[in-house]
C-alpha cells in the first residue's frame, strides 16, 4: 500500500501547487461574500438564496477540479515521459491505477471540504443556524459523488485524450445529474440502467429547504452503489493499462 499512498500524495501535492485550486477558492470567496452582503427590502436573515448559490459554486468547482486533475494524470505521465520511470519501479500497474485515482479523489475531496467550510461559515454568518445533520450528510454524499466522478475520469484517461475525457465525463455527469430520472424511454434505456445516477448524491435541495436527512439505510445503499461504480471504472482503466506498451 505504500506505493499507492506515495502516488496519492504526489497527486494531492499537484493540486495544491498549481493555481487552479486557488483561482477557484478566490472566485468562490468573492462571489459568496458579494452575495452575502446583498440586502432585500431591509428584511434580515435571508439565507436560502445564498445557500443555493454557494452550494452550486462549491459543487461545480469541486467537480471541475477533480475531473481535470484525474483526466490529466496518465496522459501527462506519458507526455512528460515520467510513466516509464515510474512503472520501471516495483509498482504493479493495477496499483498505479488505484494510486492515481485515490490521489485525484483525495485532492478533489480536500478542495471540496475547504470550499464547503468557507460556504458554511458565510451562510451561518448570514442566516444563523444550519441543519448540521443534513449538512454532514450532504457533504458525505457529495464525496461519494466525487469518488465516482474521479473514477470515471481516471478510468477514461487510459482511453481518451485529456480534452476528450474532460468533455465526455462532464457531459455524462451533467446529463445524468440533471436528466437521469427522465432517461427512461426505450432509446435511452442503456444510459438509464448502465450509467451512474449522480442525482442520487445531490442533497442540496434537502439541505436548503430543511427537509431533514435521508435514512441510514439509504446512505449505506448509496455508499455501496458508489463503490461498485468506482470499481467498474477503475477496472476498465486497469485492463487498458495492462495491455499498454510504454
Amino acid at each position: 500500500m505504500k506505493p499507492v499512498w506515495a502516488l496519492s500524495k504526489l497527486v494531492i501535492k499537484e493540486i495544491f501547487r498549481k493555481k487552479d485550486f486557488y483561482v477557484a477558492l478566490i472566485l468562490i470567496g468573492v462571489i459568496l461574500f458579494y452575495a452575502a452582503q446583498l440586502q432585500f427590502y431591509n428584511v434580515k436573515n435571508i439565507v436560502r438564496y445564498l445557500m443555493e448559490i454557494g452550494l452550486w459554486l462549491v459543487f461545480s468547482f469541486s467537480v471541475i477540479l477533480t475531473v481535470t486533475l484525474a483526466a490529466r494524470q496518465f496522459p501527462s505521465e506519458i507526455q512528460n515521459r515520467t510513466a516509464a520511470v515510474l512503472l520501471s519501479k516495483p509498482i504493479r500497474r493495477g496499483r498505479f491505477v488505484i494510486g492515481k485515482f485515490l490521489g485525484s479523489f483525495l485532492a478533489g475531496a480536500s478542495a471540496f471540504l475547504i470550499f464547503y467550510v468557507l460556504f458554511l461559515a458565510v451562510a451561518s454568518a448570514k442566516g444563523g443556524g444550519l441543519a448540521s445533520g443534513t449538512a454532514v450528510q450532504t457533504a458525505y454524499l457529495f464525496l461519494l459523488n466525487l469518488m465516482v466522478v474521479a473514477a470515471m475520469a481516471s478510468g477514461f484517461s487510459y482511453y481518451l485524450t485529456v480534452s476528450a475525457n474532460v468533455s465526455v465525463t462532464l457531459i455524462l455527469y451533467l446529463l445524468m445529474g440533471a436528466y437521469g430520472q427522465t432517461l427512461k424511454g426505450r432509446a435511452w434505456a442503456a444510459l438509464y440502467y448502465c450509467l451512474p445516477h449522480f442525482e442520487f448524491f445531490d442533497l442540496r435541495q434537502r439541505f436548503i429547504h430543511e427537509w431533514g436527512p435521508i435514512s441510514a439505510g439509504l446512505v449505506f445503499f448509496l455508499t455501496c452503489y458508489a463503490a461498485v461504480y468506482t470499481a467498474i471504472f477503475l477496472l476498465l482503466g486497469a485492463l487498458k493499462l495492462q495491455r499498454h506498451s510504454l
Binding site: 437521469g180 430520472q181 427512461k184 438509464y192 440502467y193 445516477h197 442525482e199 442520487f200 445531490d202 442533497l203 435541495q205 434537502r206 429547504h209 427537509w211 435521508i214 435514512s215 439509504l218 445503499f221 448509496l222
Partner: peptide
C-alpha cells in the same frame, strides 16, 4: 416501477 425511481423518490422530498 424500477429501483432507480424508488431511490430517487426517497432522496427527493
Amino acid at each position: 416501477g424500477d429501483w432507480i425511481s424508488r431511490v430517487n423518490h426517497e432522496v427527493r422530498r
